[in-house]
Amino acid sequence: MIQIQKVSKVYQTKDRLVKGVDNVSLEIGKGGIFGIVGYSGAGKSSLLRCLNLLEKPTEGTILIDGINLTELKGKQLRQARLKIGMIFQHFYLISQKTVYENIAFALRAAKTPKQQIDDRVTELLEMVGLSEKRNVYPGQLSGGQKQRVAIARALANNPSVLLCDEATSALDPKTTLSILRLLKKINRELAITIVLITHEMHVVKEICDRMAIMQDGKVIEEGQVYDIFSNPVAELTKEFISSVVSFEVPDTILAQCTGTIVKLLFKGNVAGESVISETIQQFDVHGNFLHGSIEYIQEMPLGTFLMELQGREPDIERAISYMSTRHVHVEVINNGD
């Protein structure tokens, strides 16, 4: 488990102090994938670097598996860092060294016995799907392949935690998906705790169990990814989610609607049930779909639909009441007045 307790990080600029991280407390469960989301300057990367003390917190405590990193120095801190792997947006591979040598470098730095290095590098290359690239130089690799090498290097010393700082931001969508699937595989097979920094909500939706939203150095919302997608509270969270699940309907279409416009939220198994068709059949109302989708988050469906209900007001009210009893969250957007 990672415990972040009242952590702040203050930077001295030319003329003032800037608080990059402001009194953040989080608990990240062992073996999970935790996403930290925010725009540039939100403090998410500063917080991530505090986790392995690349940035020493100005205040607060970082505990990983019960060890207080903020109390360690010198050799003890270096030893603790061996159990915290890290990958970056720009890979940071050594261009003059082959793929094999880039991974072996991490093992040599940890003073791994020479006879064990080759076996470990071979194992890691197979894990990330690059066995045939062992003698190739980074300049001959694609962006996705470079990130796979960086992941293998970060895993070299069997870390219990893997920190990912915008690890997919420099990659195209198809390659991003392949890297995210690799990270999920690593998490499941090796039980490594992954902390992932990103400004892309679809990355969190794809692989994270829990997440936090940061703004101005503070955590403004935190919880299970599914719960936050289905019921966001903070305006910034809603803004991020809208980048993945959009429900905007052109004003020209809305202007043509004369009925009651409702937003329907279906969670879990309810998303697969025929609640809408049953409602229309049982009550004297007509439905006109304006927009809708079903997303799968942590392999659970989350359906959201925008529709126009037409009919007598009492019938519409009964229809809305019925859907609510079927565990559908109904929000009236416009009552047709």
Rank of each mutant, 00 (worst) to 15 (best):
Q256H: 11
Q256R: 10
C257V: 15
C257M: 12
C257K: 15
T258H: 13
T258A: 14
G259M: 07
G259C: 07
T260E: 13
V262N: 02
K263F: 01
K263T: 05
L264G: 01
L264R: 07
L264C: 04
L264V: 00
L265H: 04
L265E: 06
L265T: 11
F266M: 05
K267V: 05
K267W: 01
K267N: 06
G268D: 05
G268H: 03
G268N: 00
G268V: 02
N269Y: 10
N269T: 07
V270D: 11
V270Y: 02
A271L: 04
G272K: 01
G272N: 03
E273M: 11
E273T: 12
E273W: 04
S274G: 14
S274F: 04
S274E: 00
S274D: 09
V275Y: 02
V275C: 12
I276V: 13
I276F: 07
I276A: 07
S277P: 00
S277D: 08
E278K: 11
E278D: 14
E278A: 11
T279E: 04
T279R: 01
I280H: 00
I280E: 02
Q281C: 06
Q281R: 14
Q281P: 08
Q282R: 15
Q282A: 15
Q282N: 09
F283P: 01
F283K: 05
D284I: 01
D284H: 13
D284G: 03
D284R: 12
V285Q: 02
V285K: 07
H286K: 14
G287A: 09
G287D: 09
G287R: 03
N288D: 10
N288P: 12
F289A: 14
F289M: 15
F289Y: 15
F289G: 13
L290E: 12
L290S: 12
H291C: 15
G292N: 03
G292E: 06
S293G: 15
S293R: 14
S293A: 09
S293D: 13
E295N: 11
E295L: 12
Y296L: 07
Y296A: 01
Y296V: 07
Y296K: 02
I297M: 01
I297Q: 09
Q298T: 05
M300E: 03
M300A: 11
P301E: 06
P301F: 04
L302P: 05
L302G: 08
L302D: 02
L302F: 08
G303M: 01
G303K: 00
G303T: 02
T304N: 04
T304L: 01
T304D: 04
T304A: 01
F305L: 15
L306D: 07
L306M: 14
M307K: 01
M307N: 10
M307G: 13
E308P: 09
E308V: 12
L309V: 10
L309H: 13
L309K: 12
L309I: 15
Q310Y: 12
Q310I: 14
